[in-house]
């Protein structure tokens, strides 16, 4: 998980105000432990402690006398890399959340409200109430509707909890169906789409599976293999591969965010005031037709020619379904693959 790195003075202030009550609750804590707890580099803790130790209030003399300042056990800090606050000033409790901070966490919780971790009781509801009570004003009206999360999640979790492999039928985007046996490593999501990354026994490699393409899920009797355990998963869900196809798209500027995942570092070449060309990288033409057909009127394939032809054929085959007339139960035409 990415570590928290304060950038703005506001974030640094929030960090200082949070570190004080934490240190107060721990008579003596190592810099390493504090860093691990807050998920920040040790040097960030040291810098904050140095600042806290010389800070305070103007006091009666308005001169920041010794008693008006925080103090720490300097020997322990300098020699043992340990923090012990010996004198407190003004604050001793954690600060409240702002209305926006509470709202951001609440909306995140709502998004996760269908996870098996919280299926048995209303953890989210109780947490939302706590966050609202801990906020300085009513959380703002930003909300995420509870999606019905895929039932596969519970089975995936059971596979991990019992350290047994998971088997399922999987239809990949090329249209190939196969029974796969895997050890799940991480569940990921992108908006309404959920994925699991897993060590695939057959491929002897990590593969990403879309939950809504999995069927017939079973936790097997086979113990999870050791190979997957040490794999370091990349941060991004979609990785470019040297075998990817490069396709040039022309699209309106407003549609650019919709193809964001496939653009990578491609430069944008402007063709007229509101149309740009970008190169997208995709694993195969199956993914291209999906992408472009969902953006009909917004994006057009410029090249290469066989990519254009593939999209045209895909659209033509689809239209042929409709040429047979309004909803008559004709057998589906065999799609060209």
């Amino acid at each position: 998980m990415a570590s928290f790195q304060p950038m703005h003075a506001q974030d640094k202030l929030a960090f200082l105000l949070s570190l004080v009550p934490y240190l107060m609750d721990h008579d003596r804590v190592s810099v390493a432990d504090a860093a691990a707890h807050f998920g920040v580099p040790p040097e960030q803790i040291r810098q904050a402690v140095r600042l806290i130790a010389v800070s305070g209030v103007p006091g009666e003399t308005t001169q920041y006398q010794h008693d008006d300042l925080f103090d720490i056990d300097w020997d322990a800090f300098e020699q043992d890399d340990e923090i012990a606050i010996t004198h407190l000033v003004a604050i001793d409790e954690s600060p409240r959340f702002s209305a926006r901070e509470a709202a951001a966490l609440i909306a995140g919780l709502q998004y996760l409200s269908g996870l098996p971790e919280q299926a048995d009781r209303d953890v989210v509801g109780s947490l939302m109430a706590k966050l609202s009570r801990g906020a300085s004003a009513a959380p703002s009206e930003v909300a995420v509707g509870s999606g019905d999360l895929d039932e596969a999640l519970a089975t995936i979790r059971r596979s991990v909890a019992t350290a047994r492999s998971l088997a399922f039928d999987y239809l990949n985007a090329r249209g190939e169906r196969e029974r796969r046996t895997v050890d799940p490593l991480r569940v990921e999501s992108l908006d309404a789409d959920w994925y699991v990354r897993a060590w695939d026994h057959g491929r002897q490699a990590v593969r990403t599976f879309r939950l809504d393409r999995m069927s017939g899920l079973d936790v097997t009797d086979e113990p999870a293999s050791a190979e997957g355990r040490d794999v370091v998963l990349p941060e991004t869900l979609f990785q470019a591969s040297p075998d990817d196809l490069s396709v040039e798209l022309e699209l309106s500027e407003a549609a650019l965010p919709l193809v964001d995942d496939w653009i990578g570092g491609s430069e944008r070449r402007r063709v007229d005031p509101d149309r740009v060309r970008v190169t997208v990288r995709l694993a195969h033409y199956g993914a291209l037709t999906r992408l472009v057909a969902g953006l009909a009127g917004l994006a057009t394939v410029v090249g290469p020619p066989d990519a254009r032809a593939t999209v045209e054929r895909w659209a033509g085959d689809a239209l042929a379904n409709y040429a047979t007339g309004g909803g008559s139960p004709s057998p589906a035409t065999g799609p060209a693959r």
């Binding site: 105000l17 934490y22 600060p95 979790r157 991480r186």
Partner: peptide, 25 residues
């Protein structure tokens, strides 16, 4: 992220979830 820093000031340790999640909205 800021709300999380404030929460961490309470000093409560977190449990490791059974499986890693990387949700993204």
């Amino acid at each position: 992220q800021r709300a999380l820093v404030k929460l961490r000031s309470l000093g409560i340790r977190s449990d490791d979830p059974v499986i890693g999640y990387a949700p993204r909205l």
